[in-house]
């Protein structure tokens, strides 16, 4: 399995500055979570996220991910909240302590639409943005380079971590460690695996940190960017307009009452 979900394509969505996409994602979520109506989430999903996904050329990949992540949770949500929602009054069907209520179904629809927006919008961001580019754009905007180092370094570390875990497990099996079938007993395999893994990985750290300090990692002088991330005036304006719209969405329910 590759470490990131990034799909390389040439599209207007890929070309956007990563910070613009991140601001758009956050504002979208604020709008969806601020207004407690199921049609807001559905509307955002159909009118914003789906067109953006189609434009980016990652629609199919996104749909696959969204179905795999969302379908089990959404099905369970409708079942649980439809049948046991505490505020339910309009009963459609009843069986013992379970009652199918309109309120419960509406609640499930609202939460479900929000979750669909959360998952689809963030997966779309990850599909269309290279993590390295996102990190350098954020560092240009003032994020501490320490955060970018940790995130980029982890993404590269995970595959080698898996390899090392595999070889340790093989070595332990070679000296007679049995991997039992019973999943609960398999927990016992964790110990002979984790000890050597932790020792090895943390021993490497010291050398790495010496190398980092020798290259001025701790220095806080402001550095120029090696690869500047493209940005346009339109996007700069958009990054101010979108939060303003999100603020309107927060205030709106109070001004117009409940509906």
């Amino acid at each position: 399995m590759s470490t990131t979900l990034y799909v390389e394509r040439v599209s207007p969505v890929h070309r956007l500055n990563p910070v613009t996409k991140l601001v758009a994602l956050l504002c979208l979520l604020v709008v969806v979570f601020a207004i407690a109506q199921w049609w807001v989430g559905v509307g955002v999903l159909l009118l914003v996220i789906v067109p953006a996904a189609v434009a980016s050329g990652c629609g199919g990949v996104l749909a696959g991910f969204a179905l795999r992540l969302l379908l089990p949770v959404l099905a369970m949500l409708v079942l649980v909240q439809g049948l046991t929602y505490p505020g339910g009054q309009t009963v459609l069907w009843e069986w013992g302590p379970l009652a199918l209520t309109t309120e419960g179904l509406l609640f499930a629809a609202t939460i479900g639409a929000r979750l669909a927006c959360l998952v689809c919008a963030s997966v779309l961001l990850v599909l269309t943005t290279h993590p390295g580019e996102l990190m350098s754009a954020l560092t240009e905007k003032g994020l501490s380079p320490k955060f970018s180092y940790i995130i980029s370094s982890t993404l590269q570390l995970i595959p080698s971590f898996r390899d090392r875990a595999d070889s340790i497990l093989l070595a332990q099996q070679a000296r007679g460690l049995a991997v039992p079938r019973n999943p609960l007993r398999r927990l016992g395999v964790l110990m002979p695996l984790l000890g050597p893994l932790v020792l090895g990985m943390f021993t490497d750290v010291e050398e790495r940190s010496t190398a980092m300090e020798a290259r001025g990692f701790g220095s806080t002088a402001r550095r120029t960017s090696l690869v500047p991330v493209p940005d346009t005036t339109a996007q700069r304006v958009a990054r101010w307009v979108m939060p303003a719209l999100a603020a309107v969405a927060i205030v709106a329910p109070f001004v117009w009452g409940s509906r």
């Binding site: 940790i150 982890t154 010291e206």
Partner: peptide
């Protein structure tokens, strides 16, 4: 810096 270099290992774990 040593601690910063340890963080990715812990996250991977």
């Amino acid at each position: 810096t040593v601690t910063i270099a340890m963080v990715p290992v812990a996250i991977a774990l």
